[in-house]
Every structure is written in C-alpha cells, then in structure tokens.
Design a protein around this nucleic acid. Structure first.
Lengths: 252, 252
DNA sequence: GGCACCAAATTGGTTGGGCCATTGAACCAC
DNA sequence: GTGGTTCAATGGCCCAACCAATTTGGTGCC
C-alpha cells in the first residue's frame, strides 16, 4: 500500500478554501449584479430561473440564497410578479440579525418603550444638529400631513404619525435609529390589533410633534430632546391606562 | 406615497388577507416542538427528512424555513451532523435585522457609538432607580475586578470592562438594553481585530466607571446618566483619534 | 483492553425536473 | 371606456435522486 502515516503529517495540500459556500456565492454574485446594473431599492431583480441559468446553479440554490436575504429584509418576493430589492446592499455590508423576546404583555411593551425613549430623544437631538434644509422640509411636510389627517379623521393618524418620526430618524444621519425603532414600533402594531379599551390612544402625544419640530428647526438639540421625552411620556401614560383597563377586564 | 383621499370616503380596513405561508407554518411548528420537547440552545433538532415527513411537507420547504432561521442566527447547520439550536426561540420573537453599509469604516463605528450613547445613558439612569442591593453588589464586584485587572495588566481590561457594563444592563431590569448594546459592542470588537494605531484605546474611560457606579449606588439617576455620557465621550474621542491615524496610513 | 484504521449509515447540500397559484398585461366583448 | 378572459411569466412547493461531510460502529492489530 501507500504510506500509512500520511494522515499524521500533512506537509502540503492544504486547500480548505472554496470547499463550500455555494449559495453564498450566489449572494455575492447578486451584490455584484446590483452594483453593476445600479439596481435601486424597489427595483426588480432577475427572476430565479434566470439567475439559476446565469450562475450555473440549481434554481433551488438560488431560492435558498434569496430566502436568506428575504429573512434579513433585503428583498421582497411577490408571487407571480417577481423579486424586488428592499434595501441598499454593498459588498462590505454588515448584517446583524438580532432576535429578542417580544411578548405581548404590558411589561414587554413597556420595555420597548424604554428603548424607544432613549433612541427617540437622541435621534431628535442629532437631527437638530445635522438636518439639512431638504430634510427639514421633508419633516415639515410630514408634520403637516399628520396634523391634517389628525383633524380630518378625528385622531386616526397613526400612519402619518409614523412617517413623521421616520423622517426625523432619516435626518439624524444614522439609519440605525430607524431600524431599531422600527422593530419596536412593530411590536406596538401587533399590540393595537388587540384593542384594549383605550380609545384615544396616542392622542395626547399630538401637540408635541409640532413642538419637537420647532425645536429641531431652531437647531436646539436639547430642546428637541426634551420635547421627544415629553412625547414618549404621553405614550407611556396611555399604555399604563390600557394596562389598567386590561387588568379590570381580565379579572371578570 | 400615501393616498390622501382614502380618508374622505371609506374607512373600512380589510384584513391583510394572506392565505397561508407554508414555510412559516413549518417555523411555527418548530417553535412548538422546541417548547414541547424543551430543546435547549446547543441541542440537536430533528433532521430535515424527519421534519418533512412529520409535517407532511417537502424537505425543500423545511430547508427554506431553516435557511431563514440560519440567516437570523437561530440555528446552525453542520453537514453530516445535523441542525442545532443556537438561541432561545419563542412564539412572539422580535426579529430585528440590522444592516449598516460598510461595517468597517469610521462612520459605521461612529453610528454604533451613537446608539450606544443613547442606550448606555438610559440604562444607567434606570439602573440607578431600580437596582436591588444584590445587583448593586454584583456591579461593585465587577468594578473591583476591572480596576484590579486594569492596574495589573496596564490597561488590558477589556473583558472585565464589558462585564461591568453588562451587570449594569441586567440591573436596569430591561434585557433589551443588554442585547442591543451587545450587538453594537460586537461590531466594535470585530473592528478592533484590525489594530489601528491607538495604543491606549479606552484608557480614558477608566475613571468614569467608578464615578458612574457611585452615582448609581447613590440612586442618582441623572448623575449616573451624566457619567455614562462622559464615559462614552472618551470612547468617541479615542475613535476619532484612531480615524485620524487611519486616514494618515491610508493615504500613503 | 486499547488503539488505529476503515466502511457503512446518517445528514445537510445540491441538482434538475415538474406542477400549482398568483400576478399582470394583452386582448376581446359589451 | 368598462369589465371580463386568456395567457405567459413568476414565485411557491413538491419529488426523487445524488454528492459531500460527518458520525458511527466494527475490525484487526498490538
């Protein structure tokens, strides 16, 4: 036979690289494609069948790669239509999926609010320092829409409200604020599906949107932070009110 | 963007009709299985073939579901061995995939620091209000270890430093702080593998650990917040110093 | 018994084929 | 135009293999 001790001493032949990562290669190719073709968020990506043929891999492999991106919120798939880019991608992007327990109970909601209070205040302060005239105009526009919808619908301005806040996060120059707070906001939306007796939830926060905007427009960072804190405080009060209702209803 | 006329006419809100998602059902079933069988992180999950047969779906569908979880870091697959749980799962988990472009440059690190500044300050304030005597003792213990290691090793107390901060997050009574800041911390450390010329990085923050602890022990929420801000400020200064070095080195 | 070695069973990774449900656009009747 | 119909494109799912890495268990040699 051959040398029986070969396994103990391995002088050369160390090429462990490139051993795997078939579907990772698909994603890298997709990143290259996006850059080369200047695909913008919202644009359509090549179909799975075309990608499979182009990259000489099975369509199933393409699907698993896209499934990973879908889980990370980078693409959106619409059956019968196509796959669309949802966020910017670049070769050296850092994906950091964070999963944390997000219950539906009062304590969990209160915890998300504590996170939001910290971030909302900081975002408002940063926004006051960094907002460009364009982003200020965008914020003002969202504010006006929100106020108009609020009066027209007698307070049902949740969507416009959220867009106003998002404009502030964008203007803060740090997209992490928007991403993290968006996750917290998602919990609240699942919460509102189960209505809990607080009819005017969020109404008390209404006036602080304009005062916060005014402090931002005045480049008053600490003032903006203060108004943001007042705004969150009203939401916390509403939440506690709802928790009280829930406790009453639960003990019947 | 939004439809400005919708509010005038029809306030009906249809359900977000969505027949089913086959692979979502697989994940839900897996969550149920994990809870029922008390699977702990590190344990092995059923094989793909068994799951497919058990849930009466194709193995391909099982794979797509697991691929999503793998992308979120919830499971780890080892070819030839099996699929292993990597983190706790619960029916109402909050997935927060964060993506920041160019995770290695100065701007990205600065963004993570801005998040950490907001959260660190709030956590310190909450900790000052809520810490029990036990958690206070734990924080003091971590502080002493850190200070001792700092002097013994001439400043190489990064791990002990981190444990001190974690003790504060735990004492804040809101685990979201620890988890989110841990993610930010992870980015920082990954970057620190590439040393960048700042030899005494983090040394300036040393004295503020004790002052922050003293404000917490004194139940002085705003004082603790202030010390936390000072601490982060020194890290920001160090980072800017490193960025200056990097720019010099990069333009040669 | 203890150890190195080898071969089969197990398990995730990939392939290529196929069918179904949904979408959207072109087309047609009214 | 309006409203339906047809039809190709596309993602969702299934099937039955085979490949590659790992584990496992046995075998034979000290």
């Amino acid at each position: 036979m051959s040398n029986p001790r070969r396994s103990l001493v391995n002088p050369i032949d160390m090429s462990p690289i490139q051993a795997i990562a078939r579907d990772d290669a698909v994603l890298n190719a997709l990143v290259a494609f996006v850059r080369q073709e200047a695909v913008r968020p919202g644009d359509k990506l090549p179909t799975e069948r075309i990608l499979a043929d182009l990259l000489k891999v099975s369509r199933n492999t393409v699907r698993e790669a896209l499934t990973r991106w879908e889980g990370l919120g980078l693409v959106e798939r619409r059956q019968g239509s196509g796959t669309y880019l949802k966020a910017e991608v670049s070769p050296d992007m850092l994906h950091m999926p964070l999963t944390l327990p997000g219950g539906q109970d009062f304590d969990s909601l209160m915890q998300t609010l504590e996170i939001r209070r910290a971030l909302e205040a900081e975002a408002a302060a940063l926004c006051a320092r960094r907002a460009t005239s364009e982003s200020l105009a965008a914020i003002a526009s969202k504010l006006e829409v929100m106020e108009r919808v609020f009066h027209e619908t007698n307070g049902a301005s949740a969507d416009a409200d959220w867009e106003f806040h998002q404009a502030i996060y964008k203007a803060s120059g740090n997209m992490l604020f928007e991403q993290i707070i968006a996750a917290m906001h998602g919990i609240f939306h699942r919460f509102w599906e189960h209505p809990l007796g607080v009819r005017d939830f969020g109404h008390a926060s209404f006036p602080y949107h304009r005062t916060m905007y005014e402090r931002i427009a005045a480049r008053d960072a600490e003032g903006a932070r203060g108004e943001a804190l007042k705004l969150i405080a009203t939401v916390e009060a509403d939440l506690k009110r709802g928790a009280a209702n829930l406790k009453l209803a639960g003990t019947t």
